[in-house]
Simulated assay, not measured.
Amino acid sequence: MTSEDDDKPLTRKDKLDFNSMSIEDLTSYISELEAEIEKTKSVIKMKQAAQNAASGFFKA
């Protein structure tokens, strides 16, 4: 079960200072970004499937 927040993209209003972040913090940040990328790819696949279904409907 997902919440509405799961559909919202990650946003950061502040700029990160990578030089002041620890290796652990940087690794965690990368994990967050990778999760966001996977979520985005999933949304793209859903939109492509809907678009393909619509195209098939109008071609018939």
Rank of each mutant, 00 (worst) to 15 (best):
R12I: 05
F57Y: 14
Q48I: 14
M1N: 09
L10H: 09
Q51C: 07
M46I: 01
K39V: 00
S28V: 00
K39F: 04
K39L: 03
A49H: 10
R12E: 02
M21W: 02
E34P: 01
E36W: 00
D17H: 14
D6G: 06
E36A: 09
E24P: 00
L10G: 02
A50L: 11
K41E: 15
T40P: 06
I44C: 10
K59S: 08
S55R: 07
G56K: 11
V43D: 09
A54H: 04
S31C: 08
T2V: 12
S3Q: 02
P9L: 07
L33R: 06
A53S: 11
K59C: 00
P9Q: 09
F18A: 11
D25H: 01
A49N: 09
L16Y: 09
I37W: 10
I44V: 15
S55Q: 04
K59Q: 05
A49V: 06
F58Y: 15
D17P: 12
R12G: 01
L16T: 03
S55H: 07
M21L: 12
E32S: 11
I37M: 14
D5T: 07
G56S: 09
K45L: 03
E36D: 09
K47E: 13
K45E: 13
S55W: 07
K47V: 05
E24I: 04
A49E: 13
S42A: 13
P9H: 05
I23A: 08
K8R: 14
A54L: 12
S20I: 00
S55A: 12
K39A: 13
E38R: 10
A60S: 06
E32Q: 15
D6Q: 11
L26I: 07
S28H: 13
T27I: 03
N19W: 13
E24R: 03
I37V: 15
N52I: 15
K45C: 02
D7V: 00
A35E: 15
I44Q: 13
S42I: 02
A60V: 05
N52Q: 15
T2C: 02
I23E: 07
S42H: 09
N19E: 15
Q51L: 14
S3K: 01
K59L: 05
V43S: 08
E36M: 04
K45Y: 10
D14V: 12
M1G: 15
T11P: 00
T11H: 05
Y29P: 00
A49D: 15
K45A: 13
A50H: 08
Y29Q: 10
I37Q: 14
S31V: 02
A54I: 08
S3P: 02
G56R: 10
K39Y: 04
A50Y: 06
E36L: 01
A50K: 11
F18E: 08
V43M: 09
F57E: 07
T11C: 05
A60E: 01
E34H: 03
T27A: 08
I30T: 06
